[in-house]
Design a protein around this nucleic acid. Structure first.
Lengths: 256, 256
DNA sequence: GGTAGAAGTTGACGTAACGAGAAGGTCCAG
DNA sequence: CTGGACCTTCTCGTTACGTCAACTTCTACC
């Protein structure tokens, strides 16, 4: 009752290559190896293979299966850890799928049309925003702005639009977090704010203080506020809190 | 406003190695490469990197990101396909997690205690089962049995117990499928029955006809029936249907 | 101008779990 | 004795980098 490698392959649905691999890594050794190198498997090996396949179906790594079948350590604890990993993975997947859904909806709607309006609106609001920032925080900010202008001035229209669309999508995700009841200083929101900060810094080399100051702009500057309210009327004050929380918690900002 | 590789790394949270990798595969080329080989990135590249990171977070493969950012083909359709893949993956994960939960519960309960009872019970029922099968299907089956005995007779007690536990877990999963309203000839159940058939064949080289015959044993043999009813009182007839469905649909059995 | 240290470069190998294919030995039937 | 089926052991490729190793370059300091 010995079986050749391809017999076992047919019975199990694996390929001979896979069985050789399992031999190589010590997961499933043949009952004996003949003088000509041929592998011969007995039923004991088939029984072991059955358990291997069961665990493999569950997504347990082969190395882990080797250990589990060797019977050392706490099987149940190992499976429980594996389960927890999978659950965490599943939750991440959920989050990703939600984000994808929003992104797809955003891209497939009339997004492309309104993109231009948004862009022109942004350009018009820009001078206004600059004067406001200078009045609030002095000319140090003006230098920042000049620097940012020097960069964005060389952007193509497409690059502008992409940046704008990216920003709007982020605001939508933040809006969803807000309406979902998340606090502006919760871990999930601060993680999202990382993207916000990175996005800002792309255009403007903001340090902790400058970013913190942006919170006032979001609620105080009419143009900015209107743009954000267009996405979510309740977002500006919540976003301001989130900006302050991020500056304090993640950038080490302290009021001076 | 040029940034060195490690500056970009710090700003983005990636490592220099990763950025070099992105250069290698053409995902993110530096704005220029100096005569000494140093990579220098401008803001245009940071903007691109931001979009890369967004898509990467969504689990989009790097090659796909390259294509998406190149703007060839239908972005939305690509993202939708990706989403569908993820949803399918999530469903598989759910299934796996459910199976893991059952397995863990099974292993961590008093499973180990009852294992022995089950084993001894199994051994006692074995002779009876054999006589029944011979009466029903003649001595061809007896040969099969002798062969199986020759194998299992050499098993260790531990191997017996493992096989028994494995079988019981499978019956539990089948029971859950049944109580969940799945039909014995549904695809999901037939997939589960693959495991059943493989398990049977491990002990007994059953062809399509022999496996089909097993359906009668499951309901007709008192010992077998009692064992299965212990797990789920309604399981025997449903299991018999599933066995017949599997023999017919997947093994090509035809009544002769 | 020499030197230490930080930061840059290009390989090369390792990861998980095999698939694909090359080059060659073995077995069995006609 | 020969063709075809089956077996073997390599080796490379896959994904997205981490981790050395060996070497060059830049920068600061004495």
């Amino acid at each position: 009752m010995e079986h050749s490698i391809s017999e076992v392959a047919r019975m199990s649905g694996l390929t001979p290559r896979t069985l050789r691999h399992y031999d190589d890594i010590g997961l499933l050794r043949p009952a004996r190896t003949a003088g000509n190198g041929y592998r011969w498997y007995g039923r004991r090996e088939l029984l072991r293979l059955q358990r291997i396949l069961f665990l493999r179906e569950l997504g347990v790594p082969l190395a882990q299966i080797t250990r589990l079948l060797a019977g050392d350590g706490d099987d149940v604890a190992a499976l429980r850890r594996h389960r927890d990993d999978l659950v965490a993975h599943r939750e991440r997947l959920d989050e990703i799928i939600r984000t994808l859904d929003r992104t797809i909806a955003d891209l497939s709607g009339q997004a492309h049309l309104s993109e231009e309006e948004f862009f022109t609106g942004l350009a018009a609001r820009r001078g206004d925003l600059r004067r406001d920032l200078e009045a609030r925080y002095g000319t140090r900010v003006a230098g920042h702005f000049a620097e940012a202008d020097a960069v964005t001035g060389r952007w193509t229209r497409q690059e502008h639009e992409q940046a704008a669309a990216h920003g709007r999508r982020l605001l939508r995700r933040l809006s969803e977090a807000r309406s979902g009841g998340l606090a502006p200083d919760s871990v999930a929101v601060l993680d999202l704010m990382t993207e916000h900060y990175q996005g800002i810094r792309l255009l403007w080399p903001a340090d902790a203080a400058a970013y913190h100051a942006l919170a006032d702009v979001v609620t105080g500057n009419p143009g900015q506020r209107a743009m954000i309210e267009e996405i979510d009327p309740l977002l500006p004050p919540w976003l301001a809190s989130a900006i302050r929380a991020y500056a304090t918690r993640r950038l080490g900002y302290t009021a001076s």
